[in-house]
Nucleic acid binder design. Structure first.
Length: 425
RNA sequence: GGAGGCUUCGCCUAGUCUGGUCUAUGGCGCCGCACUGCUAAUGCGGUUUGGGCUAACCGCCCAUCCCGGGUUCAAAUCCCGGAGCCUCCGCCA
């Protein structure tokens, strides 16, 4: 959630942010008035309650008629206090629910617009020229099937569309990717974490996934658990309701977990292969930093992602995601998009978001230091979302006969293999 | 799934039976000041979190004793419901 003080002092900035996101601007004024009502009702309650306490102290000392009179007055006051309390609760609840509907205030440099209005910040590497090499590239699914690495037919039988088995070398490839990613993160000072995939509503709400994104979240009705779409959720929730010593920062965690996504509203999109699936594994970087360090940390997360993709030998571009395509929590988001030869375009592989204090306020995570007790900033960035990374690896490193060259960083985790070769049918 | 115990302001802890004097005790830690030629020791003061009043500071008010209800003029304290932790039993990895 955003800072209510900012809202009161500079509502125009919040209105502009909502407008840029393409979201409801009227919430801002509704919230301002709800906040006003909340404060006035709380003042009324405070006064009555104060009076009640003063009166209450006189009762045990009083005798006879005086006591009876005090009791009568106290009884009236008690009713008034109760009513004021209820009114205060109602106003606070209204303000809170409006507050939760507001997205984070967008960073001023973010390009305004929808999904297509991103800005390309840089391009790294060059896509291969398959025509010059003299063969037509196969897509990842065809390659995966030749290698005995991916089985989507049987997954459809067992679980339906958008599911997959990684088999044989495919399974080994995931484990190698995960190990290499965790190794890079650990090297950079991240603490490796294996996290819960089922979380309570509070964690989901706190990370900002129950607003616009709610339709993409699996919910277990009977137990009121949510299946996380990313380990960002349990990693953000990890320090929920805590006050951390300022000098413990930055705190960096590398989470590895399954991720579940309903992919509502994507019917017909990316239906072939494993580019868009309901369940996948991911290594995610997550940082807790002081608010003034958030922008620098955002750049660092991006650098680690670039290091990772560069190591895998993938050509990619970095984009500054437009206002309309940011999640509710992010003030700014950098995506790395890898070149997918058979699609002839760059597709999202990783995503680094700066959430500033937005999640920390919702989850009540603060730091205590020289500047007092205040919310901290949280940031997250993908290191390796497995299926998409496999898609990019297979397609970009394929040879004419359907073999796939293994990038050097992965070889130690694949028993030194340099080449994945088609299996005999 | 069943039975019992526990949960107090960073940590430990008193208080709960018997409601008001709890504005929550004490120790540790931490911060400030004083004193001692250093460290230490000692003394004094401060030290939950959130909201609000105020131009701001000082100050003051309200809430907060795991959470939510209830009883009462009044709840850390009594009653009901729930959560978490621990122990035992059952079942299962």
């Amino acid at each position: 959630m955003i800072d209510l003080r900012l809202l009161r002092e500079d509502p125009d900035r919040v209105r502009a942010s909502q407008r840029a996101r393409g979201e409801d601007v009227d919430v801002v004024d509704a919230l301002l008035s709800a906040d006003e009502r909340r404060r006035s009702s709380s003042v009324r309650f405070d006064e009555l309650r104060s009076e009640q306490k003063v009166l209450g102290k006189q009762i045990p000392k009083a005798q006879g008629d005086e006591r009876a009179e005090l009791l009568a007055r106290a009884s009236e006051l008690a009713a008034a206090v109760k009513a004021a309390d209820a009114e205060q609760d109602k106003a606070a609840e209204e303000a809170q629910s409006l507050l939760l509907r507001l997205g984070n205030v967008v960073h001023p440099d973010v390009p305004v617009g929808g999904e297509e209005d991103f800005a390309v910040l840089e391009t790294v590497g060059t896509p291969r020229d398959f025509a010059a090499e003299g063969f037509e590239p196969k897509d990842h699914l065809e390659l995966g099937q030749l290698l005995g690495a991916i089985d989507v037919e049987r997954a459809a039988k067992v679980s339906g569309s958008r599911f997959y088995y990684l088999t044989g070398v495919g399974a080994l490839l995931e484990l190698a990717l995960v190990n290499a990613a965790i190794a890079q993160a650990t090297e950079a000072g991240f603490i490796p974490m294996l996290t819960p995939a089922l979380v309570k509503p509070r964690a989901m709400e706190g990370t900002g996934f129950l607003g616009q994104a709610a339709e993409n979240v699996y919910h277990l009705e009977r137990d009121d658990f949510y299946l996380v779409g990313t380990s960002e959720v349990p990693l953000a929730g990890y320090h929920m309701d805590e006050i951390l010593d300022a000098d413990r920062l930055p705190l960096r965690y590398a989470g590895f977990s399954p991720c579940f996504r309903r992919e509502a509203g994507t019917y017909g999109k990316d239906t072939r292969g494993i580019f868009r699936v309901h369940q996948f594994d991911k290594v995610e970087m997550f940082s807790y930093v002081a608010p003034e360090d958030a922008e620098a940390e955002h750049k660092r997360l991006l650098d680690w992602e670039k290091q990772w993709l560069t190591g895998l030998g993938l050509p990619f571009q970095v984009i500054d995601v437009a206002t309309g395509d940011l999640g509710a929590s992010a003030s700014r988001k950098f995506d790395c998009e890898a070149w997918i030869p058979t699609q002839g375009k760059y597709r999202e592989l990783t995503s680094a978001s700066n959430c500033d204090e937005f999640q920390a306020r919702r989850l009540s995570i603060r730091i205590r230091g020289e500047r007092g007790t205040r919310p901290l900033a949280t940031l997250n960035g993908t290191l390796c979302a497995v299926p998409r990374t496999i898609v990019a690896l297979l397609e970009n490193h394929q040879l004419a006969d359907g073999s796939v060259r293994v990038p050097e960083v992965l070889r130690p985790y694949l028993g030194g293999r340099e080449l994945l070769e088609p299996v005999a049918k």
